[in-house]
Protein backbone atom coordinates (compact mmCIF):
# COMPACT_ATOMS: atom_id res chain seq x y z
CA UNK A 1 0.00 0.00 0.00
CA UNK A 2 1.29 3.44 -0.83
CA UNK A 3 0.15 5.18 2.35
CA UNK A 4 1.74 3.04 5.04
CA UNK A 5 4.62 5.34 5.97
CA UNK A 6 4.91 8.97 6.96
CA UNK A 7 5.77 9.96 3.39
CA UNK A 8 2.82 11.58 1.57
CA UNK A 9 0.83 9.28 -0.68
CA UNK A 10 1.62 9.67 -4.38
CA UNK A 11 -0.80 11.71 -6.49
CA UNK A 12 -1.69 8.68 -8.58
CA UNK A 13 -0.89 5.13 -7.66
CA UNK A 14 -1.72 2.19 -9.90
CA UNK A 15 -1.11 -1.46 -9.16
CA UNK A 16 -2.00 -4.04 -11.84
CA UNK A 17 -4.71 -1.81 -13.25
CA UNK A 18 -6.69 -3.28 -16.15
CA UNK A 19 -9.55 -1.64 -18.02
CA UNK A 20 -11.52 -3.66 -20.52
CA UNK A 21 -14.44 -2.90 -22.79
CA UNK A 22 -17.08 -5.28 -24.08
CA UNK A 23 -17.22 -8.91 -23.08
CA UNK A 24 -16.79 -12.41 -24.44
CA UNK A 25 -15.49 -12.45 -28.00
CA UNK A 26 -15.47 -8.67 -28.30
CA UNK A 27 -13.44 -8.12 -25.13
CA UNK A 28 -10.82 -5.42 -25.63
CA UNK A 29 -8.11 -4.81 -23.06
CA UNK A 30 -7.57 -1.09 -23.42
CA UNK A 31 -5.31 -0.89 -20.39
CA UNK A 32 -3.55 -4.12 -19.52
CA UNK A 33 -2.02 -4.63 -16.09
CA UNK A 34 -0.20 -1.35 -15.57
CA UNK A 35 1.51 -0.25 -12.36
CA UNK A 36 3.07 3.12 -11.63
CA UNK A 37 3.04 6.02 -9.25
CA UNK A 38 3.19 9.73 -9.95
CA UNK A 39 4.55 12.15 -7.36
CA UNK A 40 3.41 15.66 -6.50
CA UNK A 41 4.66 18.37 -8.87
CA UNK A 42 5.84 15.97 -11.57
CA UNK A 43 5.16 16.29 -15.29
CA UNK A 44 4.72 12.76 -16.61
CA UNK A 45 4.09 12.08 -20.27
CA UNK A 46 2.26 9.03 -21.51
CA UNK A 47 3.41 8.37 -25.07
CA UNK A 48 2.08 5.89 -27.61
CA UNK A 49 0.37 5.44 -30.96
CA UNK A 50 -3.39 5.60 -31.45
CA UNK A 51 -5.22 2.77 -29.75
CA UNK A 52 -2.38 2.08 -27.29
CA UNK A 53 -4.69 2.82 -24.36
CA UNK A 54 -3.14 6.11 -23.28
CA UNK A 55 -6.39 8.08 -23.47
CA UNK A 56 -8.28 5.36 -21.61
CA UNK A 57 -5.66 5.45 -18.87
CA UNK A 58 -6.05 9.25 -18.75
CA UNK A 59 -9.81 8.83 -18.33
CA UNK A 60 -9.23 6.37 -15.49
CA UNK A 61 -7.10 9.00 -13.77
CA UNK A 62 -9.84 11.52 -14.38
CA UNK A 63 -12.45 9.24 -12.87
CA UNK A 64 -14.49 9.07 -16.09
CA UNK A 65 -13.73 5.33 -16.31
CA UNK A 66 -13.26 2.87 -13.49
CA UNK A 67 -10.71 0.09 -13.77
CA UNK A 68 -12.01 -3.51 -13.93
CA UNK A 69 -9.09 -4.97 -12.02
CA UNK A 70 -6.27 -3.75 -9.84
CA UNK A 71 -5.88 -0.91 -7.43
CA UNK A 72 -6.01 2.72 -8.46
CA UNK A 73 -5.79 5.54 -5.94
CA UNK A 74 -5.59 9.31 -5.91
CA UNK A 75 -3.57 10.53 -2.92
CA UNK A 76 -4.06 7.19 -1.23
CA UNK A 77 -7.81 6.92 -1.77
CA UNK A 78 -9.90 5.23 -4.43
CA UNK A 79 -11.89 7.66 -6.57
CA UNK A 80 -15.48 7.40 -5.34
CA UNK A 81 -16.91 10.89 -5.36
CA UNK A 82 -16.23 12.21 -8.87
CA UNK A 83 -17.39 15.73 -8.06
CA UNK A 84 -14.80 16.21 -5.37
CA UNK A 85 -12.23 14.46 -7.57
CA UNK A 86 -12.85 16.98 -10.35
CA UNK A 87 -12.46 19.76 -7.85
CA UNK A 88 -8.78 18.78 -7.69
CA UNK A 89 -8.14 16.88 -10.93
CA UNK A 90 -9.02 18.59 -14.21
CA UNK A 91 -8.39 18.03 -17.88
CA UNK A 92 -7.85 19.58 -21.28
CA UNK A 93 -8.88 17.54 -24.27
CA UNK A 94 -7.63 16.90 -27.75
CA UNK A 95 -10.08 18.60 -30.05
CA UNK A 96 -10.50 22.23 -29.00
CA UNK A 97 -13.39 22.70 -31.46
CA UNK A 98 -15.61 19.99 -30.09
CA UNK A 99 -14.78 20.82 -26.48
CA UNK A 100 -17.06 23.77 -26.13
CA UNK A 101 -20.80 23.85 -26.55
CA UNK A 102 -21.41 25.99 -29.62
CA UNK A 103 -24.69 27.33 -28.25
CA UNK A 104 -23.19 29.27 -25.35
CA UNK A 105 -20.65 32.08 -25.27
CA UNK A 106 -17.11 31.12 -24.34
CA UNK A 107 -17.10 33.36 -21.33
CA UNK A 108 -20.26 31.82 -19.91
CA UNK A 109 -18.77 28.36 -20.35
CA UNK A 110 -15.55 29.36 -18.61
CA UNK A 111 -17.61 30.73 -15.73
CA UNK A 112 -19.74 27.60 -15.71
CA UNK A 113 -16.59 25.58 -15.04
CA UNK A 114 -16.16 27.27 -11.66
CA UNK A 115 -19.29 25.43 -10.46
CA UNK A 116 -17.14 22.41 -9.71
CA UNK A 117 -15.28 24.27 -6.97
CA UNK A 118 -16.10 23.28 -3.41
CA UNK A 119 -16.48 26.90 -2.35
CA UNK A 120 -18.58 28.64 -5.00
CA UNK A 121 -17.04 32.00 -5.87
CA UNK A 122 -19.21 35.10 -5.86
CA UNK A 123 -20.21 36.57 -9.23
CA UNK A 124 -17.52 39.25 -9.07
CA UNK A 125 -14.94 36.74 -7.93
CA UNK A 126 -15.88 34.33 -10.74
CA UNK A 127 -15.46 37.11 -13.30
CA UNK A 128 -12.12 38.05 -11.81
CA UNK A 129 -10.89 34.46 -11.95
CA UNK A 130 -11.98 34.01 -15.57
CA UNK A 131 -10.23 37.27 -16.48
CA UNK A 132 -7.07 36.14 -14.71
CA UNK A 133 -7.23 32.80 -16.52
CA UNK A 134 -7.56 34.51 -19.89
CA UNK A 135 -4.72 36.89 -19.10
CA UNK A 136 -2.51 33.96 -18.13
CA UNK A 137 -2.76 32.67 -21.72
CA UNK A 138 -2.19 36.12 -23.22
CA UNK A 139 -5.77 36.83 -24.21
CA UNK A 140 -7.35 40.17 -23.42
CA UNK A 141 -10.70 39.37 -21.80
CA UNK A 142 -12.61 41.92 -23.86
CA UNK A 143 -11.39 40.28 -27.09
CA UNK A 144 -13.58 37.26 -26.43
CA UNK A 145 -16.49 39.19 -24.90
CA UNK A 146 -19.70 37.89 -26.46
CA UNK A 147 -17.79 35.49 -28.72
CA UNK A 148 -18.91 31.95 -29.50
CA UNK A 149 -16.62 28.93 -29.98
CA UNK A 150 -16.91 28.88 -33.79
CA UNK A 151 -15.60 32.45 -34.02
CA UNK A 152 -12.10 31.50 -32.83
CA UNK A 153 -9.24 29.57 -34.42
CA UNK A 154 -8.07 26.15 -33.22
CA UNK A 155 -5.04 27.60 -31.47
CA UNK A 156 -7.17 30.18 -29.67
CA UNK A 157 -9.69 27.52 -28.62
CA UNK A 158 -6.92 25.36 -27.20
CA UNK A 159 -5.80 28.41 -25.20
CA UNK A 160 -9.38 28.80 -23.92
CA UNK A 161 -9.15 25.28 -22.52
CA UNK A 162 -5.93 26.26 -20.79
CA UNK A 163 -7.49 29.52 -19.57
CA UNK A 164 -10.15 27.36 -17.95
CA UNK A 165 -7.40 25.51 -16.09
CA UNK A 166 -5.70 28.75 -15.02
CA UNK A 167 -9.08 29.94 -13.70
CA UNK A 168 -9.88 26.69 -11.89
CA UNK A 169 -6.35 26.12 -10.51
CA UNK A 170 -6.78 22.37 -9.92
CA UNK A 171 -4.01 20.43 -8.18
CA UNK A 172 -3.62 17.99 -11.06
CA UNK A 173 -4.02 18.43 -14.80
CA UNK A 174 -4.57 15.59 -17.25
CA UNK A 175 -3.69 16.99 -20.68
CA UNK A 176 -5.03 14.52 -23.26
CA UNK A 177 -3.29 15.24 -26.59
CA UNK A 178 -3.72 19.01 -26.29
CA UNK A 179 -1.34 19.62 -29.19
CA UNK A 180 -2.42 17.12 -31.80
CA UNK A 181 -5.09 19.27 -33.45
CA UNK A 182 -3.21 22.57 -33.49
CA UNK A 183 -0.63 23.95 -35.88
CA UNK A 184 2.97 22.92 -35.41
CA UNK A 185 3.95 26.52 -34.70
CA UNK A 186 1.43 26.84 -31.84
CA UNK A 187 2.56 23.64 -30.10
CA UNK A 188 5.57 25.23 -28.45
CA UNK A 189 3.17 27.84 -27.10
CA UNK A 190 0.96 25.22 -25.46
CA UNK A 191 3.95 23.46 -23.94
CA UNK A 192 5.04 26.82 -22.50
CA UNK A 193 1.68 27.14 -20.75
CA UNK A 194 1.99 23.63 -19.32
CA UNK A 195 5.40 24.58 -17.90
CA UNK A 196 3.89 27.77 -16.51
CA UNK A 197 1.16 25.77 -14.73
CA UNK A 198 3.80 23.62 -13.14
CA UNK A 199 6.17 26.44 -12.16
CA UNK A 200 3.65 29.06 -11.04
CA UNK A 201 0.90 26.91 -9.57
CA UNK A 202 2.89 23.80 -8.64
CA UNK A 203 0.53 21.64 -10.64
CA UNK A 204 1.09 17.93 -11.22
CA UNK A 205 0.67 17.29 -14.94
CA UNK A 206 0.01 14.13 -16.91
CA UNK A 207 0.65 14.85 -20.58
CA UNK A 208 -0.77 12.34 -23.06
CA UNK A 209 0.67 12.50 -26.57
CA UNK A 210 1.70 10.41 -29.57
CA UNK A 211 4.67 12.67 -30.25
CA UNK A 212 7.67 11.64 -28.20
CA UNK A 213 9.44 14.81 -29.37
CA UNK A 214 6.93 17.01 -27.52
CA UNK A 215 6.97 14.79 -24.45
CA UNK A 216 10.75 15.03 -24.37
CA UNK A 217 10.56 18.81 -23.96
CA UNK A 218 8.25 19.15 -20.99
CA UNK A 219 8.45 15.94 -19.00
CA UNK A 220 10.22 14.83 -15.88
CA UNK A 221 9.39 11.23 -16.76
CA UNK A 222 8.09 9.37 -19.79
CA UNK A 223 5.83 6.31 -19.90
CA UNK A 224 5.80 4.56 -23.26
CA UNK A 225 2.58 2.63 -23.88
CA UNK A 226 1.89 -0.09 -26.41
CA UNK A 227 -1.21 -2.29 -26.67
CA UNK A 228 -2.38 -1.34 -23.19
CA UNK A 229 0.92 -1.95 -21.41
CA UNK A 230 3.57 0.46 -20.19
CA UNK A 231 6.56 -0.96 -22.06
CA UNK A 232 9.17 1.51 -20.86
CA UNK A 233 9.52 4.38 -18.42
CA UNK A 234 12.31 6.70 -17.38
CA UNK A 235 13.67 10.21 -17.69
CA UNK A 236 13.34 11.87 -21.12
CA UNK A 237 17.06 11.55 -21.75
CA UNK A 238 17.24 7.88 -20.75
CA UNK A 239 14.27 6.96 -22.85
CA UNK A 240 15.18 8.92 -25.98
CA UNK A 241 18.95 8.34 -25.94
CA UNK A 242 19.00 4.73 -24.75
CA UNK A 243 15.62 3.24 -25.56
CA UNK A 244 15.21 -0.32 -24.29
CA UNK A 245 11.88 -1.36 -25.77
CA UNK A 246 11.55 -1.92 -29.54
CA UNK A 247 8.30 0.07 -29.36
CA UNK A 248 10.18 3.10 -28.05
CA UNK A 249 12.74 2.71 -30.82
CA UNK A 250 9.89 2.57 -33.32
CA UNK A 251 8.23 5.71 -31.93
CA UNK A 252 11.53 7.58 -32.13
CA UNK A 253 12.24 6.36 -35.64
CA UNK A 254 8.80 7.21 -36.96
CA UNK A 255 9.01 10.92 -36.24
CA UNK A 256 10.21 12.77 -39.30
CA UNK A 257 13.09 14.88 -37.98
CA UNK A 258 14.90 17.45 -40.01
CA UNK A 259 18.42 16.16 -39.39
CA UNK A 260 17.67 12.46 -39.41
CA UNK A 261 17.18 9.88 -42.14
CA UNK A 262 13.54 8.89 -42.51
CA UNK A 263 11.66 7.26 -45.38
CA UNK A 264 13.45 7.55 -48.67
CA UNK A 265 11.69 7.86 -51.97
Amino acid sequence: MPNNSSAPAPVFYAKNVTKTFGHGKTLVKAVDDVSFSIADGEIVSIVGGSGCGKSVLAKVMLGLYKQNQGEFTYRGKAITDTRSHWNEVQSVFQDPFSCFNQFFSIRSQLKDALNILKVKPSKAEADARVDAGLMAVNITPKDIEGKYPFELSGGQMQRMLLARIFALRPKVLIADEPTSMVDACVRANILDYLMKLKVELGMTIVFVTHDIGLAYYVSDRLFIMHEGKIVESGTPDEVTQHPQSPHTVQLLEDIPEIHKEWLKR
Partner: peptide
Protein backbone atom coordinates in the same frame (compact mmCIF):
# COMPACT_ATOMS: atom_id res chain seq x y z
CA UNK B 1 -18.53 10.66 -27.04
CA UNK B 2 -17.88 14.27 -27.99
CA UNK B 3 -15.38 16.14 -25.89
CA UNK B 4 -17.79 18.88 -24.88
CA UNK B 5 -19.88 16.32 -23.03
CA UNK B 6 -16.81 15.09 -21.14
CA UNK B 7 -15.93 18.70 -20.38
CA UNK B 8 -19.46 19.42 -19.16
CA UNK B 9 -19.21 16.40 -16.88
CA UNK B 10 -15.91 17.46 -15.34
CA UNK B 11 -17.48 20.90 -14.94
CA UNK B 12 -19.82 19.08 -12.60
CA UNK B 13 -22.96 19.11 -14.76
Amino acid sequence: SRDHIALARINGA
